[in-house]
Design a protein around this nucleic acid. Structure first.
Lengths: 143, 143
DNA sequence: ACTTAATATATAGACATCTATGTAATCGGT
DNA sequence: ACCGATTACATAGATGTCTATATATTAAGT
């Protein structure tokens, strides 16, 4: 049957997400970066855009809960990629700063990001890219 | 800027997946079903289609590793929804069977599945549905 | 000023998932 | 018929994630 609708977007979306995660992990591995999960990468990428962000803000940006981000930062700190600094204006706030070691990873993450885009968009025409993003946005609004 | 491509399909896909998961959890909760995660539901749904499947086959169908499925079944068994039975043809194989209690959940999962489809496809035209599935399939093939 | 509420982060415990490994049963070649 | 390889499942340990709760600091109301 042609043009059959199978109604398994939920399943395909899950597979794509897993695919992206695995791609990130294997690329990090290729570059000898170990002990880092995709969410840790999300945090680092946020900090590349703007260094010295509070924990809470990072949690919002990467769409994880604040306790999760605390634990993620624990690990990034232990690995020497970031450090904590208390805010001077409000000492409840912990600001997360990249170390030099953390900053050095930026090109790797940039490369991984490009690779993901190549996999996702590489087989699509410009029209299809626009269609895709438009459809996904439309769906997201309904949750 | 109109029709701008933002290249954040990966992020949107993640959010949709989380949205689906949360919807499942809240619906199960509404029906008083507790201690069940989406993956447990995936297993039950497989068994509704065909009862008495081996662990390995379940793992393939729900796209989890076999050890993960073993643990998921441990829980379903503990909750009384399924039971293990050794195959008579090949005693290495463990067949998973629904109990009556497990069978009783079928209408709930059917309802949840419909609800998910409503959220995902409810705002789309038939053309858009076809576009979406076509695009997602195209992307999936590239992983 | 003092008490209460709100906010920011951390900690604890639980869970799904993974990889690596163990164990038991079956298959296959000699 | 036996021994090595394969297959199926289970177990162990690690990790990311969550909810619930604790701690510490700031803000607000009386």
């Amino acid at each position: 049957m042609k043009n059959m609708i199978k109604y398994d977007t939920a399943s395909m979306v899950g597979k794509i997400r897993d695919g992206v995660n695995n791609l990130i992990l294997s690329e990090l591995n290729k570059h000898g970066v170990e002990g880092i999960a995709p969410s840790h990468g999300d945090i680092l990428v946020c900090l590349y855009k703007k260094n010295g962000l509070p924990v809470k803000e990072l949690a919002e940006k990467i769409h994880r809960t604040q306790p999760t981000v605390t634990v993620l930062i624990d690990k990034l700190q232990k690995l020497g990629f970031v450090e904590r600094k208390k805010s001077k204006e409000d000492s409840r706030i912990t600001l997360i700063n990249l170390t030099e070691k953390g900053t050095q990873l930026e090109p790797i993450f940039r490369e991984i990001s490009e690779k993901i885009n190549t996999v996702i968009y590489g087989g699509l025409t410009n029209t299809e890219k626009e269609q895709l993003e438009h459809l996904l946005e439309k769906i997201l609004k309904r949750f």
